[in-house]
Structure formats: structure tokens, C-alpha cells
Design a protein around this nucleic acid. Structure first.
Lengths: 300, 300
DNA sequence: GTCATTATCTGACTGTAGTCTAATAAATGT
DNA sequence: ACATTTATTAGACTACAGTCAGATAATGAC
């Protein structure tokens, strides 16, 4: 374990220095960093200033002033939004798009300069190790937190979830039927609604509700496709089970559709036993059950 | 190749964000970053302010002011150096050492927090991928440059080199015999002296001199132990051969001691053929030769 | 229509991380 | 002894990346 810590610290040092130096060398000192970031985030299609602020978590005054600076350099325009006159839409000018492409090319050059001194074999190994680190750091960076099912983030996750059901179920999926009404049951203290976030943006969700005395039910478990297979589902499920334990539940049930094969497999591996139908959900083909033991401890 | 660039850029983004956030969370906002860095670099034993400045490449005024700030916090003292009254020696106070230990503990915590959410198997894979990335980024970060054999960096490398010879040769090694006098032959245009640097500090060297008409000789090839097996030797040798080509040399010779088995192996793999004794170096047991082809191109 | 909310903008202010110039003092070369 | 170099220090200045308080304008709820 101490060795692990030393390896991580050496990695931290090397990577920070190496990438820091290169980022500065290739991207720095032509614009302030924040301006490059903005050009990059605004992109060729433009964004609402409001979304930009939310995404980057910037102070509104600071963002406003930085946008003015970019306007002064003729790299972007902001125009009043047609629908909501309070917000503005930021769009790169032709010059702005050119500048963005230039930054992008520099960024590629930076990446190439990292592997340029290496042999092909070393390059291959570096790339695959980088992909592994990226994957696992993203996995470890996911934070799970409680939220209200009506929050914008929860709604966004649920939209993604229902869209996916609609595309995967053969006969489609009608989200209207009873889906909006049961939101209340995911609110504490009877239930809970968890979102998983990576770098502040939601990448998954899961809900718990009380089904009967001492019995809970897990619903709405969803993970962004790019986050699957990283152990985030396991942590989300553990957090829901932890919430169930806190509510003195002794067992958890859940149902799922036959087309969601990874989910079925996932629940089986997580200690859920298939049981007989316990509800009349028209979209369910499998029903599961797990008895909670008291000493269970979630890692979230 | 485009895929590689995308992988590197994704890695850059994820790692910068993840480590940046954590560095700030654990290390930030108690001292300015530069003060933590200084505490860390000064260490429990103290350093000469001159060396500190050289190592971190800081502006002397800036360093001076930052040291004053740390003195004000009673974390260090600077005292006039006994031998050279111009420079000062910076030493942590008892409180400074305690603070350093605290920062160190936070740094360990940071490292642990990176793997805490992962399974044991994921942790194992992340650690080994990090070690690989660290290794290869250090390899790719090495820069090879020409210098004079009398420069402080060159002298430092040569000291390391001769120390290693002294410890590896059974009968020891006498560096006095003709070693100081031949420094002139490594100066352009007849010869050259190259140092390999990683993050500004020397990690290897190699020299070329003219042996006769159209024939060069490679001498003083040394690599810091921690940089071996990373392909840096190959690059250094290629750079020396490139320098030889520039000098219109048609062949290169070199000799080596029987105890330097990696070197012997390395030269063989690099296209050198063992030949008969061509000099009367008392420490040589193997003599090598390589004919240079005109189209050879070094990557450095 | 009123009022609270949301979004942006403006201006004043802060902390960090420097750079640059000049002064001073000690050491070194001749 | 004197000039040059080296090392530190002090002070003035800059760029960047914000924070915070308040003004203004549009929207949405009632």
C-alpha cells in the first residue's frame, strides 16, 4: 500500500510537470488560459452563456468580462436569445472558429510531441497505459450524492434513462403511464434519489422507494453508456442498499425488462435472487430480491 | 495515429482535472502553492538558497521574498553560509518540519483518495498503468543537448560516471590518468559533448572525439541508473552518431570494460561489431566499430 | 400589475505568481 | 588594490484568475 502511494505520487509529479510544461509551451501565452477554455467550450456551434457558466462553474461577472474581451478580439459575438431575452447566445466568428482550429491543432501537436521520442513499441505501451489510467481515474472520480427527483440533474438522467428504454424495448416504451406521478416516493425519508456525477456532470442515477413494511424497491437505475463497466453501477447499488439499511429495510426488490441483459447479469452478480412476479409492471420480465445483512457497509 | 492523439488528449484532460481538483482540495489554500513547493524542496535537511533557485528555476527576487514570507511564519530560518558568505542556507524550523510532515501526509491522503473508490483489482491495474505512464513520460521527457565538457552539468555527469566505474571495476579506477587532459577533444568542431536532461536536471551524457581522418570515437557514455532501460541510451547514441555524420566521419569506434555487460550488449544491439584492440586503454577489454551509412537520421 | 427570480453586466477589490531594475555585499581573477 | 562576477535583497510593476456587491433587464408566478 505504501508502494502504491509512492507510485501514485511519482505519477502525479511526473504527469503534472510534463503536461504542465507542454500545455504552457503549446497552448500558453497567446491567450490567457481561460480564453482558450472558453473558445474550446463554445465550439463551432455556439452555446447559451447560461449553460457555459453552469458547465465551467464560473462567476457570472468574470465570465461576462472574459466574453467581452473575446468580443474585443473579434473572436466571438453574443446575441440576445430569441426565446429568453435574459440570456445570451455566444457564437464564434469566422476568426474565432479559425482560432479554435489553431488551438486544436496545437493540442494535437502537444499530444504527438509526447510520443515522438519513443519507439513504436513504447508508444503502443504508453497509449494503452494512458487509456487505462483515464478509464480508472474517471471511474474513481465519480461521486454519488443524494438529490431530489425533481432536480434538473435528476430529470436529465431520467430523460436519458427513458430514452434508452424506448430505444431498447421492442414495442417501445410509454413513459407517461404512471411515471410522473410516482416521483414523490423517491423523496426522503421514505425513499431516496441518488445521482452519480463525474467532474460535476451527471452520469448516472438510481432510486429507492418503500414498497411495504421493511421492504424497499430499487428503480430508475441508469448509467451513461461511456461509464459502464467501470464499477460505478456497483457503487451506486451499494449506496442504495446503504440507504435501505439506514431505513431499517430488511430486503430489497426490483424488476427489469428482458432486453436489459447487462442489468439482469449485474443484479445476479450483486447477490440478487430471481423471484416470482411481485407487481404488474407491464414492462417487467424478471423480478429480483435480496436480503440485506446488518453489517453491510457501502463505500459511498 | 489519430486515435493515439485522441487517447492522449483524453488522458490529458482527465488527469489534469482529476489531479488538479485533488491537489487543490488537499494541498491548496493553506499556503500558496509556491510555499508548499519550497517547504518540500528544502526538506528536513535544508539547502543552499542558490541551489534551491537553480533547481526550481525561480527568479531570485521572488524566491527571496517567498523565503521572507516563510520566515515570517516561523517555518524556516536562513543563515549566512560559513564558506561562501554571499549565499545563505535555508533550514526548516521545528515548526517547518512539522508542517512539511503535514503536507506529506496530505499528499499521501490525496494518493489514497484516488484509489479508495476502486476495487482491489481496479487499484492493482491503475497502479501498474500509472507506473507505466510515469516511466514512459519520463523517457519521452528527456532532452538531449550539446554542452561544453567543462560545464557544471557535464562535470557532474562525469563525476557520476567515474564514480560508477570505480565501484564496478574490480581493481578500482584511477580517473587521474589522462582523464582531465583529454577534455579539449570533446569540444566542437572536432568533437562534441552531449547531456541528456529530464526536467532540467542532467541524467546522462556522451562524448564524441576525432580519432583519425574520418574516424570518430565515442567516450564517456553514462546514464543515471533510474533512467536505464527506457530507450534513452539509444537516443543518446543516435545523437552522437548524428554528430559524427555531420563531421563527415565514416566510422565510429569505442572501447569498454568487461564488467560493463549491459553496455557491451547495448553496443552489439546497436550495430557495433567487436574488433581487435585499437588502443592501449588499460581499462578496456572490448573494442567495437561501426560503419556509418550516409542516410542515417537521428531522432534528436 | 406586482413581485420574486434569473441572467447578465459593471466596477471595485483580492491573492497568486511572477518579471524587471537597481542596490548591496561577498568572493574571485588579475 | 581594483574590477568583475555571483548571490541575495528590495521595490515597483504586471498578468491572470478570480470574488463580491450591486445595478439592470427580462421572465415567470400569482
Amino acid at each position: 500500500m505504501t508502494d502504491d502511494v509512492m507510485t501514485i505520487r511519482a505519477f502525479n509529479r511526473t504527469v503534472t510537470r510534463r503536461l504542465g510544461v507542454l500545455n504552457e509551451k503549446y497552448l500558453g501565452r497567446e491567450h490567457p488560459l481561460i480564453e482558450s477554455r472558453l473558445l474550446f467550450e463554445i465550439g463551432a456551434d455556439g452555446v447559451l452563456v447560461r449553460d457555459l457558466r453552469a458547465r465551467l462553474g464560473l462567476d457570472s461577472g468574470f465570465l461576462s468580462r472574459t466574453l467581452r474581451a473575446l468580443e474585443g478580439k473579434r473572436l466571438l459575438n453574443t446575441i440576445k436569445h430569441r426565446v429568453d431575452g435574459r440570456t445570451r447566445f455566444a457564437k464564434l466568428t469566422r476568426q474565432g472558429v479559425a482560432e479554435l482550429r489553431r488551438i486544436d491543432a496545437l493540442s494535437n501537436k502537444l499530444a504527438e510531441s509526447l510520443v515522438a521520442p519513443l519507439t513504436d513499441e513504447q508508444t503502443r505501451r504508453l497509449i494503452s497505459a494512458m487509456a487505462e489510467v483515464d478509464r480508472l481515474l474517471r471511474a474513481s472520480g465519480v461521486e454519488i450524492a443524494q438529490t431530489l427527483p425533481g432536480s434538473p440533474e435528476a430529470r436529465w438522467c431520467l430523460d436519458q434513462y427513458f430514452d434508452e428504454l424506448a430505444s431498447r424495448f421492442e414495442g417501445g416504451f410509454d413513459r407517461g403511464a404512471g411515471m410522473a406521478s410516482d416521483v414523490e416516493c423517491f423523496v426522503p425519508p421514505d425513499g431516496t434519489f441518488l445521482v452519480a456525477r463525474l467532474f460535476g456532470t451527471p452520469v448516472g442515477c438510481g432510486a429507492l422507494r418503500t414498497l411495504g413494511s421493511g421492504v424497499g424497491e430499487i428503480k430508475r437505475m441508469w448509467l451513461a453508456p461511456e461509464m459502464r463497466g467501470l464499477g460505478v453501477g456497483r457503487r451506486l447499488l451499494a449506496a442504495l442498499e446503504h440507504a435501505a439499511c439506514e431505513r431499517k429495510m430488511r430486503a430489497i426488490r426490483l424488476d427489469t425488462h428482458k432486453s436489459l441483459t447487462e442489468a439482469i447479469q449485474f443484479y445476479r452478480l450483486s447477490g440478487y435472487r430471481e423471484i416470482a412476479r411481485y407487481n404488474n409492471n407491464p414492462y417487467a420480465h424478471h423480478w429480483f430480491d435480496k436480503t440485506l445483512t446488518m453489517h453491510r457497509r457501502a463505500r459511498d
